[in-house]
Amino acid sequence: MRRAFLYLLLLSVSGLLHGGQKSVVLIARADSKVSDLDSLTVRKLFMGWPVLVNGGPLHAIRNRSDEQLDEVFLQQVVAMSQSAYERQILTGLNRQGSIRPEDVTSQERVLQELLTDPNAVSFAWLRDVAHNPKIRVIRVLWSE
């Protein structure tokens, strides 16, 4: 009974921390070499352009596990509509031999991919990754 009360208290505290504010954050493995990326570089990365950090190309993972997350990504990161983004990616693939960001539709898969590849970069709701010690938040992409 006492333990249940404690959990409730913790929940309400975390609610205070995150409940009012929704944030989308750029993430990588905890030991990733990536320290910070400006908004233009992030956009380039997710448009399929090669981005090198310490001589190694970054691996972009598009997290499509949540619809609103995807909309935030389109509006804030690439600043395009879904169809325009698809067109851009296809054009890049065909003309410049760019790398298409990997589409992953489940949160678990995104984390798994990130953990196996030190060069992988993705994004997620802050609340989903805030307490994960294996994941490092690089920067906030959008918050409300």
Binding site: S39, L40, R43, L74, Q75, A79, M80, S81, Q82, S83, A84
Partner: peptide, 17 residues
């Protein structure tokens, strides 16, 4: 809608930059 959304997103991104 797609055209509108695409253009306003590009525009606002440009403004922010």
């Amino acid at each position: 809608a797609d055209l509108f959304v695409n253009s306003v997103r590009s525009y606002s991104r440009m403004v922010a930059d």
